[in-house]
Computed example of a mutant assay.
Amino acid sequence: MGAFCVYGISRSVCKITATKKQPTTGKGTSKSLTISEFGAARDELAERLFAETTKRGKISPELDAPQFCMDWIAAGKDEVKDCVIMSRGPKVDKNGGPVIKQGAPVMTWVEYDPKSAPAFGPMS
């Protein structure tokens, strides 16, 4: 299991959302859309969602290192926007203390801070 992932806005996620939201009938009529009409309407809605959406979601698989996340973002730079690298970490409450459930801290995705990451140097 990886400890890193990318959160952001993805065209493919917007297209899936648009597929679910796009009605199969025309505006103001009960006539069903053809496959090509539905596809065009869905693609138009997906592009609008991609341009207007501001809420980030998990858009990558879990990866083992932050540099793999950077490579993943670079590979799809035209298909994603507003990306941030996240890592697994303890969930904190409004006072900054860890949230404890059944005696253990609750783990969630938190924004990755390379400054707080441990530095691995040569072994002595």
Rank of each mutant, 00 (worst) to 15 (best):
G2S: 06
A3Y: 07
F4N: 06
V6L: 05
V6G: 00
Y7A: 05
G8I: 03
G8F: 00
R11S: 07
R11D: 04
S12T: 11
C14P: 01
K15D: 08
K15R: 15
T17F: 01
T17H: 02
A18K: 05
A18C: 04
T19I: 04
T19P: 01
T19V: 03
Q22P: 00
Q22L: 00
Q22R: 02
K27D: 06
T29D: 03
T29N: 12
K31P: 02
S32P: 12
T34Q: 08
T34C: 04
I35M: 10
I35E: 11
F38T: 05
F38D: 03
F38Q: 07
G39E: 11
A41W: 01
D43C: 04
E44T: 15
L45K: 15
A46R: 14
A46I: 02
E47A: 15
E47M: 11
R48D: 11
L49E: 11
L49Q: 12
F50D: 12
F50N: 14
A51M: 12
E52I: 13
E52Q: 13
T53L: 10
T53H: 05
T53W: 02
T54R: 15
T54S: 13
K55H: 11
R56Y: 07
G57D: 13
G57K: 13
G57V: 13
G57Q: 14
G57M: 14
I59L: 02
S60A: 14
S60T: 10
S60Q: 03
P61H: 10
P61Y: 04
P61V: 03
L63C: 05
D64G: 12
D64P: 03
D64L: 04
D64M: 06
Q67G: 02
Q67A: 09
Q67P: 00
C69Q: 13
M70V: 09
M70T: 14
D71N: 06
D71V: 08
I73F: 06
I73Y: 01
A74R: 15
A74F: 01
A75L: 07
A75N: 08
A75H: 05
A75Y: 06
D78G: 01
D78S: 10
E79Y: 02
D82Q: 08
D82G: 05
C83M: 05
V84F: 01
I85P: 00
I85W: 01
S87G: 04
S87C: 14
R88V: 13
R88M: 10
R88Q: 08
G89R: 10
G89L: 06
G89D: 09
G89P: 03
K91P: 08
V92L: 15
V92C: 10
D93C: 05
D93R: 10
K94C: 00
N95V: 07
N95A: 11
G96I: 07
G97K: 15
G97L: 12
G97A: 14
V99I: 14
V99F: 09
I100F: 05
K101D: 09
K101Q: 14
G103M: 05
G103P: 15
G103N: 06
A104L: 12
A104D: 03
P105Q: 11
V106Q: 12
V106I: 11
M107I: 15
V110K: 10
V110Q: 13
E111S: 06
E111L: 00
Y112S: 01
D113S: 10
D113C: 07
P114T: 03
K115I: 00
A119Q: 14
F120N: 12
F120P: 01
G121F: 09
G121V: 13
P122Y: 12
P122W: 05
P122I: 04
M123E: 09
M123W: 06
M123T: 07
